[in-house]
C-alpha cells in the first residue's frame, strides 16, 4: 500500500531522492526511498524512533553517501558538491553537537565566516529573542538553549532550504512553540523550503503542508497533508444484524467495535467508501476526517501486520 510519488516532478523539486538504499551492517536503514520536495514546501518526515529519518536527512546533506540510488539537492549531488548544497542549506542536528567549547558570540562569529549571506542583525535579533547570553559557553547551555543556538546558526544566513532533524525533541512546550514560530516565519519568506523530521505529529500537522511517513526505512505514505487527511475517513457503521466476526470491508485500515456497531478507519475516495459501506449492508452513522495521529497509527499497524503476514 505504499503511496506512489505525488505529482511533484523532480525537475521543480528542491530535494530529489530516488531509489536510495542504505545498510548499516546487516540492518537495512533505508530501502528504495524515493521522494521529491517542491520548492516552498514545508515538508514533514514522520516515523518512529529508528525508522530512518535521520539517515535520510544525512543523505540529503551528503553526510552519508547512498549505496544505491541518487540524491539531488538544488539539482546537485551533495556528496560531490558540498559547498553548492550546504552553502544554501541550514541544518539543525538532532544531536545538538555544536562545539561546546565556544561561547555563543564565538559560535556566531565562527559560523558567519562560511556563509556570505549571513545576516548579522537577524542573528542578533534571534539571539535576543531566544535570550541567549553571548558570553556563555555552548556546553553550559541547557538542551533547549542549545537547540535555540543551533536554530540561530541554521537560520541566520537565510537559507533556501532548512533541514531540521527532530528540532523539538526533548524540549519543553514553550521552547517548542518558539522554534515552530521561527520555522513559520522562515516559511513566510519568499520561496524558502523547510524539511523537518519529527515523531510529534501535532507539530507536523500544525506546520507542514507535505508529509512523508517512514517505517523501517521505507516510505509508506507520502503526499500533501490535506490530500492525505481527505483521503482517509473514520466511519461509524451500524449493521442491521450483529456481526460475529469483524466485517470484511475494502480499503479498511483499522476496525474496532462489536455486534451491530463498528468504527473503522478507511483509506480512499470518500464517496466510494460510503458506497462500499452501503453495499456491505451497513448504515453510515457518522463520517469524520481523522487526525494525522490516527492515520499514522493505523498505517503503522497495517504495515506491521503486513510485515507479519504479506497476504494482509
Amino acid at each position: 500500500m505504499t503511496t506512489p510519488c505525488p505529482s511533484t516532478s523532480s525537475s521543480d523539486a528542491v530535494i530529489s531522492v530516488a531509489g536510495v538504499s542504505r545498510h548499516f551492517g546487516g540492518r537495512r536503514a533505508l530501502d528504495q526511498v524515493t521522494l521529491h520536495v517542491p520548492r516552498g514546501a514545508v515538508f514533514g518526515l514522520v516515523g518512529e524512533n529508528g525508522a530512518g529519518k535521520t539517515t535520510l536527512i544525512q543523505h540529503i546533506l551528503g553526510l552519508l553517501a547512498p549505496e544505491s540510488g541518487t540524491v539531488r539537492v538544488f539539482g546537485r549531488d551533495p556528496v560531490a558538491d558540498p559547498i553548492g548544497v550546504l552553502g544554501r542549506t541550514g541544518y539543525l542536528s538532532e544531536r545538538r553537537d555544536l562545539p561546546g567549547w565556544m561561547r555563543i558570540d564565538e559560535l556566531l562569529r565562527y559560523t558567519r565566516a562560511f556563509y556570505p549571506r549571513w545576516d548579522g542583525e537577524y542573528a542578533e535579533s534571534l539571539r535576543q529573542r531566544f535570550a541567549l547570553p553571548s558570553s556563555q559557553k555552548v556546553q553550559t547551555l541547557s538542551q533547549g538553549q542549545q537547540a535555540k543556538a543551533g536554530l540561530i546558526v541554521a537560520l541566520a544566513f537565510r537559507p533556501e532550504l532548512l533541514l531540521l532533524d527532530e528540532p523539538s525533541s526533548g524540549l519543553d512546550p514553550v521552547v517548542r512553540r518558539e522554534i515552530l514560530e521561527a520555522i513559520i516565519r522562515t516559511v513566510a519568506e519568499d520561496r524558502r523550503t523547510v524539511f523537518f523530521s519529527s515523531h510529534l505529529l501535532d507539530e507536523i500537522e500544525r506546520v507542514c503542508d507535505h508529509i512523508a511517513m517512514i517505517r523501517a526505512g521505507r516510505i509508506v505514505l507520502f503526499g500533501r497533508l490535506d490530500d492525505i487527511k481527505q483521503g482517509h475517513r473514520r466511519l461509524h457503521l451500524h449493521f442491521d444484524e450483529p456481526c460475529q466476526a469483524p466485517p470484511a470491508l475494502e480499503a479498511l485500515l483499522t476496525l474496532e467495535g462489536a455486534g451491530r456497531d463498528w468504527t473503522g478507519l478507511f483509506r480512499g475516495d470518500p464517496m466510494r467508501l460510503l458506497a462500499m459501506a452501503r453495499a456491505a449492508g451497513a448504515t453510515v452513522v457518522a463520517e469524520e476526517v481523522p487526525s494525522l495521529d490516527e492515520v499514522f497509527v493505523a498505517q503503522t499497524l497495517v504495515d506491521a501486520r503486513r510485515g507479519a503476514d504479506p497476504h494482509v
Binding site: 559547498i83 550546504l86 562545539p99
Partner: peptide, 11 residues
C-alpha cells in the same frame, strides 16, 4: 566528524 562541522559548506 561532528555533524555541525560536516554540515558547514566547505570541502
Amino acid at each position: 566528524m561532528s555533524s555541525f562541522q560536516a554540515a558547514l559548506p566547505l570541502t
